[in-house]
């Protein structure tokens, strides 16, 4: 049996909504995560990313100051980010296809549509741990390779075909 020790994962929650943060913290605690930090806007989240050195970021999309897409782009900036490879799970009420594509193209690792569920979050984290993605770097993109991403594909996102990688 694969037993995942969630207690060693340092997790940063960046979400402006206090109730969502409470629910995420409850789920994470239930999973066994013990080291959790919260930030209530994108700017504070970026600061925490620098100082707290998380293993995983759970990120909201719609937030004041910097939104989740802007935060993702800054985290993935290979020239300035302290950890451009960090897994990012985008958690949002946006479910439209074009939103999923936008998030993917910014460099998120996993996409999780609200309503939240313990199983959905668990599955995203397990996927990150057991099946880490390689990264792609082109002139215009640096981020996870989504070509085998079942979750994004099933959400309707266009797969990045090998030929397209160089054109991005």
């Amino acid at each position: 049996m694969n037993i995942i020790d969630f207690s060693v994962l340092r997790t940063l929650i960046i979400d402006d909504n206090v109730h969502t943060r409470r629910m995420l913290r409850a789920i994470l605690h239930g999973l066994g995560v013990r080291d959790i930090k919260e930030a209530d806007d994108g700017a504070t989240g970026l600061e925490s990313f620098q100082t707290y050195s998380p293993d995983i970021i759970l990120l909201d999309w719609v937030m004041p100051i910097f939104d989740g897409i802007e935060v993702t782009r800054m985290v993935r900036n290979i020239d300035s980010s302290p950890n451009p490879f960090i897994p990012i799970i985008m958690i949002t009420a946006h479910a439209e296809r074009h939103r999923v594509v936008t998030a993917r193209d910014a460099g998120i690792t996993e996409f999780l549509c609200k309503p939240l569920s313990a199983k959905a979050l668990h599955d995203r984290i397990v996927n990150i741990v057991l099946n880490p993605r390689p990264f792609v770097r082109t002139k215009t993109y640096f981020g996870p390779d989504h070509r085998r991403n079942a979750s994004l594909s099933s959400a309707g996102a266009k797969r990045i075909e090998p030929d397209l990688i160089d054109q991005r």
């Binding site: 694969n2 037993i3 020790d5 994962l9 293993d55 990264f135 792609v136 082109t138």
Partner: peptide, 26 residues
């Protein structure tokens, strides 16, 4: 044309996964 496929230097598997017997998930 310069596009690169890169292995992530992060490896959670060795730190957080304990395998005991078959390949099912707890």
């Amino acid at each position: 044309s310069g596009g690169q496929l890169i292995d992530s230097p992060l490896n959670f598997r060795k730190h957080v996964v304990q395998v005991t017997g078959n390949n099912t998930l707890d």
